[in-house]
Nucleic acid binder design. Structure first.
Length: 760
RNA sequence: GCCCAGAUGGCGGAACUGGUAUACGCGUUCGACUUAAAAUCGAAUGGGGAAACUCGUGCGGGUUCGAUUCCCGCUCUGGGCACCA
């Protein structure tokens, strides 16, 4: 008797898929398409972890499900390869990041193939390959040409450990998202993408997206639109007027002082000989404070600048303070303080003994001009790192930036000896002296000129802001994406991931809108449906980590003899897709037993019954599994299959029963299903259910008295249409009679629930 | 502090649109097979009770013939944001 040997059959089918390439697709104009992708992985040296497997398997289940329905399904794969881990490894060992990356990609590819994913391997992309980042640079230049990539000198988050600036989104609790070191503020000239240009559209289109509410809310909060007004305050003694932003212009009668941020540009002009020293010292201290320090100590601090402003409503003379509770990057960096209406202002007023006036409210538009501001800032994209996409810019002798012409792309990352950034604040690219010099046409002088290249590289998020579109024509050397192919495949129908709720998912929307405006994309939202799945924790419920020694390696699970099908099916069965789950080795065994039973039904139990015997459960199971997969209830889809198999064990199985089983299980356990289908001599086309076979001839009607279950009646299906007959049957039941001795007030029959409730 | 999500057996979790709470899996117990064990197969399994029955979905109220589901008020847990004027 043949035993279920997953290792053997998985090897067999993986070899077949490698040779026949059944998942390689091309545009078929008359066939409906489906474009499904996961958030592509960063290929670490550790290889796939169980979270990757959950991510990729969700995509695979959907891919196979729609493929079995004969849709034209694009399911590509790629690697997000720029970034610090490879670079830090390079610094430590002297190995080129290019080489480390290649090794890791090879390993990831091998492991993904071992899991039997239905990937179109001809479309693999790698963000650090020159043929890819050439087009990342092209994207940058489009933004640059439209003025949406620009330079600005400002205070920025700086990670002293990684020697680079960070975007707002990359600072978590005042610490660098990569190394965990506390970040500082540093004044630098940096490149930005003007995402705020699209703030309104990014906000307003959120509601129309088929995305989890959690993510939608996070994005709305992140953009943080607030409407209010800007109000000018004249300053006594000739210093420039101060414009404040407020959401409560109606409270101006109660504004008893002004506060400006430490980084406020006109700060020094507000000081006098007596206050200058203290004010500048306060500023220096505030700027130096780490984010952690700011958060830990929320006690209000500040100093008087020495100047007074005139409240335009009351004409009163009010003092101007500098305090770090006012943020330079929001609004105008200056506020009117209304201690009677604002808790923070009150705190400050109490501490510095400033007047608190419960003044009357006035018309909002009397003294200000309406203004909308956003919490979201422009996206800082410069990184002082070696292992990133070089920014295709060169500077002339005046320090003015010029685009590297598109026909000179890609700007290849130069080879250097030492990948470490030096302490000039420039990346290791600055060490490639020959590379730094480039001849570029200067449109101002009308001449070719030797210029100096930009040494910053792009934030890795730039590379992942357009990769979904690259998948449609990954080897196109003429375009970032082919205009015809993008029309057929994009936008992405289903996108699956577990991270990047604001950053990546906001950036990709921003670029989509930008390129739609340029006419390169025929849609304005890149992702129709987003599946945001939970993490998988260790059996002890804690996060898996190398240091805790509680990491489950998916390849170990496979090689222990369970095989890829068990691993895949288990991870779909582990719980609701959106929730975190804890790994349970014993449940893995349960899933393995289930697959064994599927095998046994086909290969060990040879007696077959008639196709009619199980027609009801068969149709029910088809319906349940189909609708569950559409709703992404993968755990209950697997449960339904388990129930079906348990039933087939009890009743025996017909040939048709087994064919249906194999087809339904294929998205989860494709190797086993292929083996079963081969034996049963059937194709894998997704089955349809027939509504008329969803109920048996005899059905059970539940009888309640006062909402409590008192009897069950078995009646002919047709009798459900006869309410009076059912109710009299129910009343005749002996147990029901016992509870209705004192008379019946009312009866309720619910046909759909097959339920009678008698109110006694 | 603000916003979001959640709380169901010993455990992970099911439950359509307000209609039989605990599907499925794990664990446990018993039985079959075996010299034995493992594997496999079968049965039982929310608490109390001999049973009839009764109590049960975080807590307290409410609406309803009927509430895990809807409403009000709490508690706790997870996540996000956090001096955004």
């Amino acid at each position: 008797m043949e035993r279920y040997d997953p290792i053997k059959i998985e090897e067999k089918w993986q070899k077949i898929w490698e040779e026949t390439k059944p998942y390689q697709v091309t545009e078929k104009p008359n066939t409906p398409k489906m474009f499904i992708a996961e958030m592509f992985p960063y290929p670490s040296g550790a290889g796939l972890h169980v979270g990757h497997v959950r991510n990729f398997t969700i995509v695979d289940v959907l891919t196979r499900f729609y493929e079995q329905q004969r849709l034209n399904v694009l399911r590509p794969f790629g690697y997000d390869t720029f970034g610090l881990p490879a670079e830090n490894y390079a610094i430590k060992t002297g190995t080129a990041p290019q080489d480390v990356t290649k090794t890791n990609i090879d390993n990831f590819r091998k492991q993904a193939k071992r899991l039997g994913y239905a990937i179109d391997w001809s479309r693999e992309i790698n963000t650090s390959s020159p043929e890819y980042y050439k087009w990342t640079q092209w994207c940058f230049l489009q933004l640059f040409k439209k003025g949406l990539a620009y330079q600005k000198e400002s205070y920025q988050w700086w990670c002293p450990e990684d020697q680079t600036v960070l975007a707002n989104e990359q600072v978590e609790n005042g610490k660098c998202w990569r190394c965990g070191h506390e970040v500082e503020k540093k004044k630098m000239k940096q490149w930005f993408f003007k995402i705020t240009e699209y703030a309104d559209e990014l906000l307003e289109e959120i509601d129309s997206l088929d995305w989890p509410d959690k993510i939608k809310t996070m994005q709305k909060n992140w953009i943080g639109r607030s409407t209010g007004a800007e109000i000018d305050f004249e300053v006594e003694g000739g210093a420039p007027k101060i414009t404040v932003f407020t959401t409560r212009p109606d409270t101006i009668m109660g504004a008893t002082f002004l506060v400006v941020a430490p980084e406020y540009s006109g700060l020094e002009a507000l000081t006098n000989d007596d206050t200058r020293e203290t004010v500048l010292a306060y500023k220096a201290a505030a700027v130096k404070k780490s984010e952690i320090e700011r958060q830990e100590n929320k006690e209000k601090t500040g100093v008087f600048t020495g100047s007074y402003a005139i409240n335009p409503a009351t004409k009163e003379k009010i003092p101007i303070y500098v305090a770090d509770y006012v943020l330079a990057g929001y609004g105008t960096g200056a506020i009117m303080a209304v201690p009677a209406y604002d808790d923070r202002d009150r705190e400050f007023a109490e501490k510095f003994d400033l007047p608190i006036i419960e003044a009357e409210l006035i018309d909002r538009d009397l003294y200000g001009t309406p203004k909308t501001t956003y919490r979201m800032r422009d996206w800082l994209i410069s990184r002082q790192r070696y292992w990133g996409c070089p920014i295709p810019i060169a500077y002339d002798s005046e320090g003015e930036p010029h685009a590297i012409p598109e026909d000179q792309l890609p700007v290849i990352i130069p080879e250097v000896e030492d990948y470490k950034p030096d302490h000039t604040g420039r990346s290791a690219l600055a060490k490639a002296k020959d590379w730094l010099k480039v001849e570029v046409f200067n449109e101002k002088t009308g001449q070719m000129e030797e210029m100096t290249r930009e040494t910053d590289t792009l934030d890795g998020y730039a590379c992942s802001s357009w990769y979904l579109w690259r998948y449609v024509s990954p080897h196109d050397s003429e375009h970032a994406w082919d205009p015809e192919a993008i029309k057929y495949w994009a936008p992405t129908d289903i996108y699956v991931g577990a991270d990047h709720a604001v950053a990546h998912l906001l950036y990709i929307r921003f670029w989509c809108k930008f390129f739609a405006d340029l006419g390169y994309l025929p849609f304005r939202e890149p992702v129709k449906k987003l599946i945001y799945h939970g993490y998988i924790n260790a059996p002890d419920g804690k996060k898996m980590s190398k240091s805790k020694g509680n990491v489950i390696d998916p390849l170990d699970v496979i090689n222990d003899g369970y095989g890829a099908d068990t691993l895949r099916t288990y991870e779909m069965f582990i719980g609701p897709v959106e929730l975190d789950a804890a790994w349970d080795p014993r449940s893995v065994g349960g899933v393995y037993r289930f697959l064994n039973r599927c095998w046994a039904l086909v290969f060990e139990k040879k007696e077959r019954i008639s196709d009619e015997s199980n027609v009801v459960i068969r149709n029910k199971t088809i319906k349940k599994v189909t609708t569950d997969i559409v709703k992404n209830n993968f755990n209950t889809a697997v449960s339904a299959l388990m129930e079906y198999v348990n039933e087939l064990f009890k009743t025996g199985a017909s040939n048709e029963d087994l064919v249906i089983l194999a087809k339904l299980i294929k998205p989860f356990a494709p190797h086993l299903a292929s083996e079963m289908l081969e034996r049963l001599n059937a194709d894998d086309e997704w089955p349809k259910w027939d509504e008329k076979h969803l109920a048996t001839d005899e059905v059970e009607v539940v009888v309640q008295v006062n909402g409590k279950l008192r009897a069950r009646l078995n009646v002919e299906k047709e009798l459900l249409d006869d309410e009076d007959a059912i109710i009299s049957l129910a009343k005749e039941d002996n147990n029901v009679k016992k509870f209705t001795e004192n008379g019946i007030k009312k009866t309720i029959f619910v046909k759909k629930a097959k339920l009678v409730n008698i109110v006694a």
